[in-house]
Nucleic acid binder design. Sequence first.
RNA 1: GCCCAGGUGGCGAAACUGGUAGACGCAAGGGACUUAAAAUCCCUCGAACCGAAAGGUUCGUGCGGGUUCGAUUCCCGCCCUGGGCACCA
Length: 886
Amino acid sequence: MFVQHGKSPVYNGAVNVSIMRTPMKEYQPQTVEEAIQRIWVENKTFKAVEDPQREKFYCLSMFPYPSGKLHMGHVRNYTIGDVIARFQRMQGKNVMQPMGWDAFGLPAENAAIAHKVAPAEWTRQNIDYMKGQLKRLGFAYDWDREVATCDPDYYKWEQWLFIKLYEKGLVYRKKSVVNWDPVDQCVLANEQVIDGKGWRSGAPVERRELEQWFVKITAYADELLDDLDQLDGWPEQVKTMQRNWIGRSEGLEIDFPLVEGDGKLSVYTTRPDTLMGVTYLAIAPDHPLSKQAAQQHPELAAFIEKCAHIATSEAVVETLEKEGVDTGIRVEHPITGEILPVWAANFVLMGYGTGAVMSVPAHDQRDWEFAKKYNLPVKVVIKPVGGELPDVREGAFTEKGELVNSGDFDGIKSEEALDVFAKVLSEKGLGRKQVNYRLRDWGVSRQRYWGCPIPMIYCDKCGVVPVPEEDLPVKLPEDVVPDGSGSPLTKMPEFYEIPCPNCGGPARRETDTFDTFFESSWYYARFACPTQKEKMLDERANYWLPVDQYIGGIEHAILHLLYARFFHKLMRDMGLVDCDEPFKNLLTQGMVIAETWYRQNEDGAKTWYNPADVAVQRDEKGRIVGGVLKSDGQPVCFGGIEKMSKSKNNGVDPQHMVEKYGADTVRLFTMFAAPPTQSLEWSDAGVEGAHRFLKRLWTLVQRHVAEGSAPSLDKAALDERQKSVRRAVHGMLQQATRDMGQRLHFNTAIAAVQGLVNNTLNKFEVKTDQDRAVLQEALELVTLVLAPITPHIAQQLWQDLGHGGLIVDEPWPQVDEAALVQAQSELVVQVNGKLRGKIAVPVDADKAAIIAAARSQENVRRFIDGKEIVKEIVVPGRLVNLVVKG
RNA sequence: GCCCAGGUGGCGAAACUGGUAGACGCAAGGGACUUAAAAUCCCUCGAACCGAAAGGUUCGUGCGGGUUCGAUUCCCGCCCUGGGCACCA
């Protein structure tokens, strides 16, 4: 389906590869790629076998959700991983590169609703199709290690681990709030809530509290934070995001006694220095005190009802207009005894901390705005050290300083306040130091069908009972088509009715399934021993782990990577793995973006057209000025360049590209257009450029080999012309080696190869036998350097250049340092930092000679004659800067 | 709103540790080949100005400041775009 079946030009059926030259003149990627891929399959080239004698390299790209077909983001991700894996193999490592499927998730249920197809069937068909696409792209995967997370042999082990965690006390149940669609009677994901309404029903969402399972990630918060320091191979940016997410802080928990009754309201603050400036407290609308007060307070009751329709996502809550109602509850300030009002406020969340905060409008901007809106008092208690009282008429003063208007505490520094107030309050029994985390425990319950069943049973007599180990896995019934009205499992007594394993009485199975992050938190480890039937992991995991290079989208910087690190530590503490961290080096790749085109409809909505269907119009400078739809010739509007998505209809189908140009061209363009961490703008014209280059290289090699085999290179007998070609060749190798090995900047490695082929090799007139030897060496090095990026054409050209065997097993070539040596170096001459000329000097010239040469330059003299030279700067091999005065 | 990135020719980008801004590629323009087209090959290509030419001058890396002999790179303050925000994966 993906390849033109032609006769293989190279494969002769033996275990190895023939040295026979191909008569092929024209570059036919489909034929070449099909033949080379067959060699790989028949030789089991990418099967990874544990070998303690060899240095291992585990290269892993984030596995895909089987959504239907590959998109360009996948192609980019997997090409980056494949290039690294092949490069490391040429460095002599024992490389393992697996692939699998993150197979549970919401889109399968959506497809079920739309097309009345069972999620299991839909998912497995998608896997089949996408696997074919991955194979067509020539990725060096060990397919024997493939796993799909919807397979009971896989998810059995996370059920097993969950029960172990339950036994260790790392799992518990508590109420937490979800988005509830009152019409469809189901829980909505955050992305299914649009403008506060259910995506299908359009009904305003309701907040609803459900009893759910949590895993105590906060018990590992300190370790997750501290171990980030070990991760030298992670981008600083990702580590910073994780640190901020964990959000460790040291502060004070403070009790404000209620005026009526003997209760108290506890708050946590990281700014104890502002305690004396508290003018009110704010609590969550659904705080028990708030609900209680609402019984005699209609305005408050109405406010609570309004807040019950706010979606749960933090982005929604944090961008709301700040609103509140005085609950009428009063508390005492723990130090002054001053009576303070308690407000219910929509920005305070019950799920965070104690569901209450102390408000200091003079020194917190959000409190300040709230106080202005509701005319609450503002009391300044912090001023800059030794400075004036800050002006808070236009906004809060949020910096630290020293205390003022604070009675006995005046003059103490912000930094000292924690200790001072902790002492005073603990003596009164109204406060204590506390370490707090922004990180919350991981809620893993999902009220969804297409996921891994949570292996728990509820018995009226025995309470919560885990499923006995011998009954695992709890299999998800697969012959089910969800209809969008809640999880089908809750309507299947044959699933949930079960005798209690403890007492044998009637009991009910948990019908919730795990968060799909559960599956993706440990798949990297299972790839080491995917068919192990007896246990979750075996000793092979300790051979392969940690993953040496992990590659995936920056969008996973926090959640997936934090959960996977957490899971790894859980598995370590279960004795399943030795190391502390799962991913040694991390590469976060950027998005794939493309042009968008649209027409405005009469109702104001936009219809988006795929860039492939638009003919772009440009002005004389090549600027985009507009476009017309190819089908009707009518204009369409340019909508900018955006992430490829269904909603903007700007996705480019990798399949079409592979069919048109071949896998190597797609891989080459993807690696060339931008460094991996940046976003990549798709360009059909750019793909053609990549294809042109491969054709040019192909032709160059074919012309060369058509002359017969080249003599061996005699390095001692080279003339200047030949030496300069070798200098360029080894210069390319030096740059490509560094760019591919250390920097992972494949775009500049490719640029170096292109520059060499187009500017040096294509212009090199081959006259003598030694010319042929120089060109032979050059073409071999070009082929070896391209082998990880464009592996099919590289293998073919390698054979054409007279080599047997697989290029993927060749060692990476060594730079010939002697070839790089130059007699002269060119220096730039600046006067006052401005470029005024260039000089060529012997490499070993001393500073005086260099300056003399610089000063004798005609254009330089124009700028220094008659002026005093106050400084002479020489940067060896780079430049001379003469600083003049007057 | 909070956290993290990014902003360089018409476009994607390069510039390694503060040292020639724009390598490599695309688009565009001109030319060769061809009956023609495609393909291929060659040349030009940041802007303005001076010069017949060779060449030279000034400006130019989101905006405004600063440090430095020298800043795309370091510092301060803004603007804009993107990613994440705990039930998309």
